[in-house]
Design a protein around this nucleic acid. Structure first.
Lengths: 343, 343
DNA sequence: AATTAGCACTCTCATAGGGAGAGTGCTAAA
DNA sequence: TTTAGCACTCTCCCTATGAGAGTGCTAATT
């Protein structure tokens, strides 16, 4: 069924009202607060139709209406108007970012900004390094048979990993190895995902006529499984979720709590959205994850030097101010892209 | 007032009973479950005295008794019997630790173990590096005018920090600098806390007759404020706290939530306990922190090569099984010490 | 002098009933 | 097509009530 203009207006009114009050919205309130010049009876009839088509529902007969996931979806896709941030807010965000010169801190600040601005949970997925072009590799001996491997990618990201090797590794061999690898890197574009394979092939060639040190083999293998390391996630504002009236009682938090506890669930969800669209909204049961059935998630990608590498997200109840969430997510991801590109 | 033996027995019984049921303990239950061969009236009288001396309290007249913070304190100091872990549990812990070969992961596993074994919040304070002797410093150029500084301490800890310098820094100068610093380090014991001052003094001497590069000054200053960097904290089991009946309603969580949200509060609290005693128990209002008034915290130090460097902690409601918490904290901190010393 | 039985008293908790209020669905009139 | 009018439904809050748990106190017992 196609919604007519009046139904769209009423659906919009219900969504807006419910977002601000968290109370079921009655026909009377709509008539009173949103001047549609319609009687409550007429509005009631339209609401009845909206309910029949699964855009609204009632907690019980004789109560007002609440938008369904489908109602929110229709609102988000067809009705909502972008709500740009005020200049003052933008300036404040820029001000806060100025404090930080370091990568880690920038990530932390971003998640804090997200949660503070939205009163929801702020999520930042650290840049994924798969497929980044490797520019340079260096090895630093840090004692006790441990080597710190430092990989610098074309986007300027620095990945570090300490690995233990069996037996003392000679500093000369180490620099020989890094020189060798860096010369190979200079020859062609090698990304982290295939770094290991390509280097192993090359190494096999020279090993036949060079001295044979097996452990370098193992060493390299350990170094370059970085791609399998889990992406770091920055979470902030966990307690915000508990301030929302829909979660007054702890039992109602049930599933959401695992999102708060296990950062990986959120990280994986967001990672899966990467590379499709700048901004993505997932509403309630649209997510297959049972942990997210009562929540909505707004994610927005950020990039380094034009290359999308990660995403930020806002997690809250389905009853969230979508226009504002989207504007905040997009503004912050743009700022973050700028800052990371400058690093 | 000195407690007589019978009062101690009754206090112990009340604590034990309350820890397991979370319900106020009545005189009837004590008479029935703990065979003291006393009538309820007698027990009631003793409980009345215990209440008058602030070891017990009643939520309302005509309800059973609950231990006060003071009651728990007396129990912990004078009545409780250490409850060693079962061999099976010990084996399981060792098994789980075997999975991890990396520092970061070891820390994470430790906090998970703590929370899983105790059903409370597990906290691990990463090793503090202040006053550690500096063994070696290296600089790695990671492009875009950024230098990765790697400091290795005598306990084998590796601190890394990326700093930005103004203008390109010559690789030769960088290695000259690191050679210079490392030669100074070899001459005498220099710890991280005074590293900056000593090096600045030394640098001033040579700078007078060496070429003058101001920016190295600034560069060094930035490098060596590591001591002011905040200690990392690993938290796990945040949602455990919500499973306890005393926190059934969200409002009752009030203060504790800030502990869950702001890791620094906990980190600072634990850090302040460092260096005094292996294990420390803080019960409810004994902590000056308002955030901890409804909680207890059991902390236990761990060390690397005999040198105490950090602590682990268990955070839960004051109604916790103290003997078990202490055994777990001590066992885990010992294991962690072993593992970190081997790295 | 210490302990205990007995009992009145207090407080919680669960249940039910009743009335006010909000909001709906339906119908007939405009 | 819209609306006024009204009966109906459901929630919420208040009150009353009674059972049950547990205490404090007193007088009797050991």
């Amino acid at each position: 069924m196609e919604l007519n203009e009046r139904m769209k207006t009423i659906l919009t009114a219900v969504v807006h009202r419910y977002i601000t009050t968290a109370e079921p919205v009655s026909s009377g309130i709509i008539a009173q607060k949103y001047n549609l010049n319609l009687s409550t009876a007429t509005i009631r009839h339209e609401m009845y139709l909206l309910e029949k088509n699964d855009y609204l529902w009632q907690p019980h007969t004789s109560s007002g209406r609440i938008p369904t996931d489908r109602g929110y979806r229709f609102y988000v896709d067809n009705l909502m108007v972008k709500n740009y941030l005020k200049e003052k807010e933008k300036r404040e965000i820029i001000q806060i970012y100025k404090k930080s010169k370091e990568f880690e801190e920038t990530m932390k600040i971003t998640s804090q900004l997200l949660s503070n601005l939205t009163n929801n949970i702020g999520v930042v997925l650290a840049p994924v390094i798969y497929n980044n072009i490797v520019k340079n590799i260096q090895f630093v001996s840090v004692g006790n048979n441990r080597i710190l491997t430092v990989i610098v990618t074309d986007t300027g990201l620095v990945c570090q990993k300490i690995i233990s090797v069996s037996g003392e590794i000679n500093t000369d061999r180490l620099s020989y190895l890094s020189n060798f690898i860096n010369s190979k890197l200079a020859e062609k574009d090698i990304n982290i995902t295939n770094l290991n394979n390509i280097l192993m092939d090359e190494l096999d060639k020279i090993i036949s006529f060079q001295e044979k040190f097996n452990y370098i083999h193992n060493f390299l293998e350990e170094c370059f499984d970085i791609e399998y390391s889990e992406n770091k996630v920055y979470l902030d504002g966990r307690i915000n979720i508990m301030k929302h009236p829909e979660f007054k009682e702890i039992d109602k938090l049930n599933y959401i709590l695992s999102l708060i506890e296990e950062e990986n669930i959120l990280a994986n969800t967001i990672r899966r959205y990467l590379g499709f669209r700048k901004t993505k909204i997932t509403i309630g049961k649209e997510s297959k994850l049972k942990e997210m059935q009562n929540c909505s998630l707004v994610t927005s990608e950020y990039s380094i030097k034009g290359k999308p590498v990660g995403a930020i997200g806002i997690l809250g109840p389905t009853r969230m101010d979508y226009p504002r969430m989207v504007s905040i997510a997009e503004y912050i991801s743009d700022k973050l892209s700028e800052i990371l590109s400058e690093f």
